[in-house]
Design a protein around this nucleic acid. Structure first.
Length: 877
RNA sequence: GCACGCUUAGCUCAGUUGGUUAGAGCACUUCGUUUACACCGAAGGGGUCGUGAGUUCGAGUCUCUCAGCGUGUACCA
């Protein structure tokens, strides 16, 4: 056994330990045996550096992976990164603009800009991967993947083609969300709603128009082609079907048709809605509905892709920004006395989450995934597949059912699916998978490569979530039937933040159920968001960010890992702040110092076997350890990482360090001390891998890495525990002495005489040193009383009488009072239990084991009461 | 508007099919400690589990009401 250095300095050892692990080859499941267990890492975006959220995810995944690996599984944690299409391009463009390039796309052109983004992405990737290593994440680097590399791009194209041929991907002219700043579409999920003050204008198109309408976007009214009213609305019924021509200054006079739809609420506003098909998704839906019913209305686009008014808006407006046009149109309404009301309201506007500008609704031709169409040969839609996978299991096969932890997110998931509209997958940014579609005149070809000369590829790229959705199988070698794919798919476990539940989890389920007719993962664990001490989200603009790398430099990776996994519950948010990390760091120091104690005092080290003689304290610590192991195994299996580390901490610190180590100073059972310590290193390893592996190697010189030792099982501790285990009675004795000492505030260096009257004189004498040590007692006097019956060791202990004589005690009433209070409380409790046991309703209706428990409780309390009364009586002597 | 979540000790939070006298960490009080550890030890105080009702032999846990906070989502004519 070798000496540990005085202090644990993670900064000096962590990098080396990681290298040893990596070199050993055991991050790679090919070098492991057993049942497969797989986790595919949610790929971080290559938009910069990792934040604390990633650190938490890496920790959770690594705990799971190391735990499974130590339990003899062929464990795979597959790492990767995400090219993050729009997000990355937006980020790089922002940087370029800050560098003085006003319009990167125009000035650099496609190829040069892509090159800049590629360089940025590669740098960012390198940083991220090194950060993942610093966290101690035990992932298999030989299988590293990237959403934008060759293999993954191939999968994207194959799946795109398959969906196209099945008619699930189509090209359509629809109103979509358009970011003027980013010059690209956004899916509905990529919108962030921001509240801001706005004005609501109530007006008429013209003096002789019969219906008043209201709007917050007057400039779009230049493109109105209808007014919608409720079919039952008596005020407007007579106008339904009529068309009015009004001239509001647009290029041509507007033909406004009065249509009816139940979607309009009679009591809201004026009860009538101006319909602008080109610039509102709802209005566009009405436009399509009218078209389908054979009573079409017009569509007029008055806002262009550049965010300015189009020619259709009329010469007065053409070229103006939306804001300018609004002002002008309102001025026009005022001049002509058409404006009836102008009120201030708070409005929710959708902004682009990446570019930050308010999105415009504009009709454009884009690619969509149809979520409602029946899939050929499956007779179900994508929506239905997505529902099945989480409710009954795909194809009603419960082995193909996804379990979501915590389960409440299932409801959120279903309600999201119910409201799901077709998914717009084309983006006008350049960074991403270019749509594998080629055009020549009116011909369309879908495939990897151009089918010949003069074909032009669609310039658009795919939504980044398209490739992310394929992640669980694109990383495992599909479309080839590789060993990896057959072994590790569907993956066992997936974790993610609840913020990307829809973005990502839903898309993975969609893509996998459709493409492979199976599920992407069996279990998904949803974690909450990290917040600072005051409950605010971490963000650069709030200036409250904490860089995980700084934290690691200061406290070590283990402290960070531990602080990110204590006090969390699945799906709930977690607050993180320095005090919490310090507390974790203090624990790692404690664990280290126990090792240093063993260094200094365990000199008769013999291997622990089932024949090792156990003292009562030994038996106690082993039985506690057995209990702890079965508890934490259960906890990790149920993803209660926080609870597992909490009880392990209590055991390590309060039971092992504060009790057993103190006892060892007297009893010196080295075999047990070391055995328990080594077991603890194994149990802690998934949570704090660096320090445990460091101690393991430095102290014990083991040939085998701690990382691949067998995880302790509670059955390992099924030895015959001594029936005459009196440890709890000694504990009681000591606690009692401590109580008395505390009541009278006796300093340690004051001589205390204790007289213990017992028939088991010899046994107590043998424990005298222990009692002295743990109760801070200087002298113990023994007095034999043979009148006490000696039947067995435990019975002897129950007959212990304890007298405490303290010098200079004046206030004996204080101790009497304390005892009296405790007696009263116990009496009250006994009364309650008795009452419950006496009640027929209880004994008849409560389950038998509860009744039994209550009876035991009653006995325990009764014994306690006897003991307390006796102590009180003794105090009167 | 709708949905979901939260409300437990001064603070941050656990509390798993309802079942011992409701827990932890930090903070606090008192006492101690220089030989594994002050990044320490012992003892202690502190909670009508947000409000009000209900179901039950039994409710922090289940149901309903209300209040405060948070998140998501829709509408926004």
């Amino acid at each position: 056994m070798k000496e540990l250095p005085k202090r644990y300095e993670p900064q000096k050892t962590e990098a080396d330990i990681y290298k040893i692990w990596e070199k050993s080859g055991f991050f790679n499941p090919d070098n492991l045996d057993g049942e497969p267990f797989s986790i595919i890492m949610p790929p971080p975006n290559v938009t910069g550096v990792l934040h604390l959220g990633h650190a938490m995810e890496d920790t959770i995944m690594d705990i799971m992976t190391r735990y499974q690996r130590m339990n003899g599984k062929k464990a795979l944690l597959l790492p990767g990164t995400d090219h993050a299409a729009v997000a990355t391009q937006a980020k790089v463009e922002k940087l370029l603009i800050a560098d003085g390039i006003k319009n990167p796309r125009e000035e650099l052109g496609r190829e040069k800009l892509l090159e800049k983004i590629r360089t940025y992405a590669e740098n960012s990737k390198t940083t991220i991967l090194s950060q993942i290593r610093k966290m101690g994440t035990s992932c298999d680097w030989s299988r590293l993947a990237y959403t934008f590399d060759k293999e993954r791009s191939l999968v994207v194209n194959i799946v795109f083609k398959k969906m196209y041929e099945d008619g699930l991907i189509y090209r359509g002219h629809r109103v979509i969300n358009w970011s003027v700043k980013g010059q690209s579409t956004c899916s509905d999920d990529e919108l962030e709603y921001v509240e801001r003050p706005a004005k609501l204008y109530t007006f008429k198109y013209s003096k002789d128009f019969p219906i008043t309408i209201a709007t917050t976007r007057p400039e779009t009214k230049l493109g109105d082609t209808a007014v919608a009213v409720h079919p039952d609305d008596k005020r407007y019924q007579k106008y339904i079907g009529q068309t009015f021509t009004v001239d509001v200054g647009a290029l041509k006079p507007l033909n406004i048709k009065i249509i009816s739809t139940t979607e309009v609420e009679k009591d809201f506003g004026t009860g009538a809605l101006g319909v602008t098909p080109a610039h509102s998704p709802i209005d566009f839906a009405m436009y399509e509905q009218q078209k389908a019913s054979g009573d079409p209305i017009d569509i007029i686009q008055v806002i262009g892709k550049d965010g300015r008014m189009t020619k259709q808006a009329g010469t007065n407006y053409e070229g103006l920004t939306v804001e300018q046009a609004r002002e002008k149109f309102v001025a026009y309404l005022k001049e002509n006395n058409l404006l009836e009301k102008e009120e201030d309201i708070i409005q929710n506007v959708g902004t682009s989450d990446r570019f930050g500008d308010i999105v415009e609704s504009i009709p454009m031709t884009q690619w969509f995934v149809d979520v409602n169409k029946k899939i050929p040969h499956k007779n179900r839609s994508l929506k239905e597949l997505m529902k099945e996978a989480v409710s009954s299991g795909l194809n009603n096969d419960d082995t193909k059912k996804i379990n979501i932890t915590p389960s409440r997110f299932e409801d959120t998931y279903f309600s999201w699916i119910n409201n799901l509209r077709d998914w717009c997958i084309s983006r006008q940014v350049w960074w991403g998978h270019q749509i594998p579609v080629w055009y020549k005149d009116d011909d369309i070809f879908v495939g990897d490569k151009s089918p010949g000369d003069d074909w032009v590829q669609d310039p658009d790229t795919l939504d980044t979530w398209f490739s992310s959705g394929l992640w669980t199988f694109s990383t495992l070698g599909w479309p080839e039937e590789t060993i990896d794919f057959k072994t590790f798919h569907p993956t066992n476990w997936m974790q993610m933040g609840r913020d990307i539940l829809f973005f990502w989890m839903a898309r993975m389920i969609l893509m996998t159920t459709y493409t492979l007719d199976t599920i992407p993962f069996k279990n998904v664990y949803i974690h909450g968001m990290l917040k600072d001490k005051s409950g605010k989200k971490f963000s650069k603009s709030a200036g409250n960010t904490m860089d995980p790398i700084d934290v690691i430099a200061k406290y070590g990776a283990d402290s960070l890992r531990l602080s990110l996994t204590t006090g969390i519950a699945p799906g709930n948010d977690l607050k993180i702040y320095p005090e919490k990390i310090e507390s974790a760091r203090n624990f790692t120091t404690k664990l280290w110092n126990i090792g240093r104690y063993i260094n200094s005092s365990a000199d008769n080290y013999t291997e622990f076997t089932n024949d090792t003689t156990l003292s009562s304290a030994d038996a106690w610590i082993l039985s506690e350890l057995k209990r702890v192991i079965s508890q934490i195994t259960k906890d990790i299996d149920e993803y209660n990482f926080s609870h597992a580390s909490e009880i392990l901490r209590t055991f390590t610190w309060s039971y092992f360090a504060d009790w057993y180590v103190e006892i060892h100073k007297i009893e010196k059972n080295d075999a047990i001390l070391i055995h328990v310590y080594k077991t603890l290193l194994k149990l802690w390893h998934p949570f704090i891998p660096f320090i445990t592996e460091t101690i393991w190697q430095e102290m014990f010189d083991e040939a085998k890495l701690l990382m691949i030792t067998k995880y302790p099982q509670s059955s390992d501790f099924d030895m015959q525990l001594n029936e005459n285990n009196n440890f709890d009675l000694i504990q009681e004795l000591i606690t009692h002495i401590r109580n008395i000492r505390a009541t009278f505030k006796v300093p340690t260096n004051t001589n205390v005489d204790i007289t213990i009257i017992t028939s088991a004189n010899d046994y107590i004498t043998s424990q005298k040193t222990l009692i002295k040590k743990l109760a801070n007692v200087k002298n113990i006097t023994m007095q034999k009383d043979d009148s006490l019956q000696k039947t067995s060791a435990s019975a002897v202990f129950k007959n212990v009488k304890l007298y405490v004589h303290l010098a200079n005690i004046i206030d004996i009433d204080k101790e009497k009072q304390r005892l009296q209070d405790e007696i009263n409380n116990t009496k009250k409790y006994i009364d309650n239990v008795k009452k419950r046991l006496a009640s027929e309703q209880f004994t008849q209706k409560a389950p038998a084991h509860i009744v039994e428990t209550e009876k035991t409780n009653l006995n325990v309390a009764q014994n306690k009461l006897d003991k307390l009364s006796e102590n009180l009586k003794n105090l009167n002597i």
